[in-house]
Amino acid sequence: MTNIRLPSILDPVAIIGKKFLDIIKLIGGVGLLLSDTFFWGIIAPLTGKFPDRKSIEKQLIDEGVNSVPIVGLLSFTVGLILAMQTSFNLEKLGAATYFPALVAVATVRELGPLISSIIISGRVGASIAAELGTMVVAEEIDALRSMSLHPVRFLVIPRVIALFIMLPCLAMLANVASIAGAFVFGASTLDMSFASFKQMAFEYMTDTDVWTGLLKAAVFSFLISGISCYNGLTVTGGAEGVGRATTRSVVFSIFAIIIADGIFTAVFYYLLKL
């Protein structure tokens, strides 16, 4: 009865094919989950079925307010490093004082939204997947369904809405912290005054740079919450399954963010010439 399967030369092809199918399944699953989220978040409130306000408030604090220290600290450090790198290299061209402009534009266009989203994927995405996965294992999701309470309405909507509100705020915080880090470097090593730093930083930065960055953060929030909720709700196999879902949600969220960021950059700066 026991079948011993010999390795085949086609095994790598099968592995690649399986990974590809997994990714297609994930994209399909996240898409369906987000369409359900759209229904419960936008259509259902029009018929009087509102999402639970208390749950949203709790998630705003858990996902957003509690992430402020780590996003602020890391963004400040990245700003400081970026300022050191750029001023060192610009000095060779005799343009060391231009570093605030470079840091500011790079931060608001790219680094602020990207860094905050990656930190949130690790901090919030992992916690969403683990929490929902544990609820699946403990039959809490079945219990919700058996009480005619839709898991998307009760568990997904508060997390998606909270992250949609908080991630652009955290990206803005990352922008400010990063530029502050650059200023600390300028003031401490180049004796730059706040006025001259501000003038240099804001001269080349436009409103478009800021809102395109924040728009990206808003879209990234859907990617993180969608992927994490999907991975959490589809856990199978007990504690090991929860661990796997947590890892998958972080890896796929970061992957999706970077791919989406590439698409945004191409659309904003090459197609739309913003």
């Binding site: 403990a138 039959e139 079945d142 219990a143 058996s146």
Partner: peptide
């Protein structure tokens, strides 16, 4: 109808 799950399935939060 009501359901009593094996572990109770209470919401921990």
């Amino acid at each position: 109808f009501g359901v009593l799950f094996q572990s109770g399935a209470l919401f921990n939060s």
